[in-house]
Amino acid sequence: MLPSLIAVLNGPNLNMLGLRQPEVYGRATLDDVEQLCAQAAERLDVAIDFRQTNSEGELVSWVQECRGRAKGIVINPAALTHTSVALMDALLSVDLPVIEVHLSNIHRREEFRHYSYVSLMATGVICGLGIRGYALALTAMADLILDEEN
């Protein structure tokens, strides 16, 4: 039997990790995040599809592609968290568990960052733990998938 697939989707500017505001987002790069996710996936016996885009439309399309293909979505929507009803609607349409991840604690930042359209429909949210949040999200998602299968 093939391992369950979890989509790990990343939004705008995350390709700049390690360069952009390291005092907020840390010095790890997106490649470091992908490596951490690959290690967690191997440990959890799941497969991942790790992607990043700066385009809202492309992210929405990737979410839609998950329907019937993935068992869950781990997503760091970045700035789209606070602005994209289209992304929220796409996540609602795929009928999959979703875990929202943020490197920084969005609730300790500017007021506009406190609101998340994605949180309105997410199964869970992990924020403020840096790149470790991705590994925690994958662990939680693997548990949710296992619970659903049993």
Rank of each mutant, 00 (worst) to 15 (best):
G72Q: 10
V98G: 13
K71A: 15
I73L: 09
I73N: 04
S84K: 09
V101A: 03
V74W: 03
V60F: 03
H102I: 00
Q52L: 01
R69D: 12
Q64Y: 08
A86V: 07
G72N: 03
A70K: 06
D89C: 10
G68Q: 12
E100L: 00
L92H: 10
L87G: 00
L92M: 14
S93N: 05
L92K: 15
M88V: 06
F50P: 06
V94P: 02
G57D: 04
K71I: 06
R69V: 14
A78V: 00
H102C: 03
L91S: 07
Q64H: 14
H82E: 04
E100W: 01
V101T: 06
G68Y: 08
R67H: 14
Q52N: 04
E56I: 06
D95I: 03
V63S: 07
V98Q: 10
D95C: 11
S93L: 05
L59A: 04
L92S: 14
S55Q: 13
I99Y: 05
L91R: 05
T53P: 12
V101L: 02
D89V: 08
T81R: 00
E58R: 15
E56C: 02
T53W: 02
P77E: 10
Q52F: 01
L96G: 02
G57A: 14
V74Q: 02
S55M: 09
I99A: 03
W62N: 11
T81A: 09
S84R: 12
D95L: 08
V74A: 08
G57H: 03
L92F: 05
